[in-house]
Amino acid sequence: MKEGIDVAQQITEITRTLSNKIAVVTGASRGAGKGIAIALGQAGTTVYVTGRSAANTDSPYGGSVGETAELVTKSGGEGIPTIVDHADDAAVADLFERIKQEHGKLDILVNNASKVAGPATGGFWEKSLEIADLITVGLRSHYVASYYAAPLMIANGKGLIVNTGHYGAVSYFQNPAYGAQKAGGDKMAADMAKELRPYNVAAVSIWMGGLDTERTRAYFATLPADKIPKQKLESPEFTGRVIAALYNTDRRMNLSGQALIGAELGAILGVTDIDGSIPMSNRFTMGGPHELHRSLID
């Protein structure tokens, strides 16, 4: 994509880029996953939308895999709602076997599923131990989905695995389980990239900034006006637009293995947010990705 084009032109170009491509976006009932799935749909992709929410009453924040899939289809792709508990390895295996039978390939996997529980404040020892489930559904589940996705991408001769990441990998954010999950996702992508490189399959972690999601809006609604952060939030669709551009760029394999700040990658690839704005990197306030050891890039 070129820099300096208007939003309408950019959307038109995006729509042409990923027709006939197959993607899986995990944890896409709402939030980041929902936005990513919709943006990939805008690019013409067939998207398997996974999550546990069969109805929008299953979460206090609303949303369901069916609603997201419908929006993917309305945006120009094909949304396929798929109820999957990503703590269930057999259910994940069944998902990718279904994709193999229906399409014989997979082009993009976005690992976004996570399990969030408990309050954001207080010491980790004061919170429910259930918060540690974020390491299972959010780190281990990324590994399991990638395990089943990789053979389909290798057979296809091209692919992209994305772990949704965050600055919490290097700075304090929410709790120790969150930080461990994000740091682990970065290293997992780097190591997978090393092993997948001979097969033209890339793996990256993309750090998202503050997102305008249902959960964020609900949290802000509890704050006094003077306590609401002033920085503009990224739309959840922005990361999906970046992923579409990354899949198509000839820099894809050069960037493989890295943890990448979405706002910075978007600037490199000429991607704007859905309102035409350019999201801001938080590198200088929250830190940046670690440098990879040469053993991971040689």
Score class of each variant (00 low, 15 high):
residue 173 F to I: 13
residue 214 E to W: 10
residue 107 D to F: 04
residue 175 N to C: 10
residue 245 A to S: 10
residue 107 D to V: 10
residue 163 N to R: 08
residue 290 H to N: 14
residue 295 S to V: 14
residue 237 E to Q: 14
residue 13 E to F: 08
residue 127 K to A: 03
residue 183 A to W: 02
residue 228 I to N: 02
residue 268 I to A: 08
residue 174 Q to D: 11
residue 55 A to Q: 15
residue 241 R to T: 03
residue 215 R to T: 09
residue 138 G to S: 09
residue 231 Q to A: 14
residue 144 V to E: 00
residue 195 E to Q: 11
residue 242 V to A: 05
residue 17 T to E: 12
residue 6 D to K: 10
residue 243 I to T: 04
residue 213 T to H: 04
residue 183 A to N: 05
residue 200 N to S: 08
residue 67 E to K: 15
residue 66 G to F: 08
residue 256 S to G: 13
residue 176 P to G: 04
residue 55 A to R: 15
residue 168 G to R: 01
residue 143 Y to H: 13
residue 17 T to A: 12
residue 39 A to N: 01
residue 130 E to H: 07
residue 184 G to N: 01
residue 117 A to M: 06
residue 114 S to R: 13
residue 209 G to S: 09
residue 165 G to H: 03
residue 4 G to F: 11
residue 26 T to L: 12
residue 285 T to K: 12
residue 248 N to P: 06
residue 54 A to N: 11
residue 100 K to Q: 14
residue 49 V to F: 08
residue 286 M to H: 12
residue 46 T to S: 08
residue 29 S to R: 08
residue 277 S to Y: 04
residue 155 A to T: 11
residue 278 I to K: 02
residue 277 S to Q: 06
residue 46 T to V: 11
residue 140 R to I: 07
residue 76 G to H: 09
residue 2 K to Q: 14
residue 259 A to T: 02
residue 14 I to D: 10
residue 139 L to D: 00
residue 18 L to H: 07
residue 109 L to D: 01
residue 294 R to N: 03
residue 81 P to H: 11
residue 155 A to W: 02
residue 146 S to W: 00
residue 68 T to R: 11
residue 139 L to I: 11
residue 84 V to A: 04
residue 195 E to A: 09
residue 54 A to Y: 06
residue 44 G to P: 05
residue 129 L to R: 06
residue 216 T to K: 13
residue 249 T to Q: 02
residue 85 D to N: 15
residue 36 I to N: 03
residue 272 T to N: 13
residue 192 M to F: 13
residue 38 I to S: 04
